[in-house]
Simulated assay, not measured.
Amino acid sequence: MSVFSERLTEARKMMGWTRKRAVSEIGIPYQTYSNYEQGKREPDINTITMFANKLNTTTDFLTGMTDDPSPKNHSASDDTALTWADLGMPYGGKIPDELKQTYADLAESYFKRHPEMLNKNNK
């Protein structure tokens, strides 16, 4: 079995779906889906993206790029992540001096709880 086939099966089971329910929800033939789960076929990127959306996970999880199946924790590494300038937007792009320490404390607290994000952003 491939990483993809194992992850597809895992994501389906996390949804509490049988294969029959999965093909009904996803809208592909049973045999095609079964071949994906058994590792007999590999889907194209558009199909992987569709699976990720329908199974409430990410393409990174399905392809083995991450072990985290949850789509909610992946925005910090993409191009839409907030920057210091974004945090100052209500203040014309500049954080007032009296709030800089508050923002720094928030960032420090966040990275203490999520040290993996600190390492990811420093690469």
Score class of each variant (00 low, 15 high):
103 Y>W: 01
111 F>C: 00
94 K>M: 07
95 I>H: 00
103 Y>H: 01
17 W>V: 09
62 L>A: 03
37 E>V: 13
68 D>R: 15
73 N>L: 08
76 A>I: 10
70 S>Q: 03
69 P>M: 04
7 R>E: 09
14 M>Y: 04
113 R>T: 15
102 T>R: 11
89 M>Y: 03
85 A>G: 00
106 L>S: 03
54 K>R: 08
50 M>E: 13
45 I>Q: 12
12 R>S: 14
7 R>V: 11
69 P>F: 14
27 G>Y: 00
117 M>K: 08
78 D>K: 01
109 S>Y: 01
1 M>P: 02
31 Q>F: 06
43 P>V: 15
88 G>V: 03
71 P>F: 11
117 M>S: 05
86 D>A: 05
16 G>N: 08
76 A>L: 14
26 I>P: 10
49 T>D: 06
16 G>T: 02
115 P>T: 00
29 P>W: 11
107 A>S: 08
2 S>I: 02
10 E>R: 00
111 F>T: 07
41 R>C: 12
92 G>D: 13
9 T>Y: 10
39 G>Q: 15
8 L>I: 04
23 V>L: 07
26 I>R: 06
99 L>S: 11
122 N>P: 11
100 K>S: 09
87 L>G: 15
77 S>A: 07
64 G>V: 08
9 T>W: 10
106 L>K: 08
68 D>Q: 03
87 L>V: 07
22 A>Y: 14
91 Y>H: 04
9 T>E: 14
43 P>Q: 13
86 D>M: 06
55 L>F: 14
44 D>V: 15
53 N>G: 11
66 T>A: 12
19 R>K: 13
59 T>C: 01
35 N>H: 03
11 A>R: 00
49 T>A: 13
39 G>I: 09
58 T>E: 11
68 D>W: 14
109 S>L: 11
61 F>H: 06
74 H>K: 11
102 T>D: 04
86 D>E: 06
20 K>R: 10
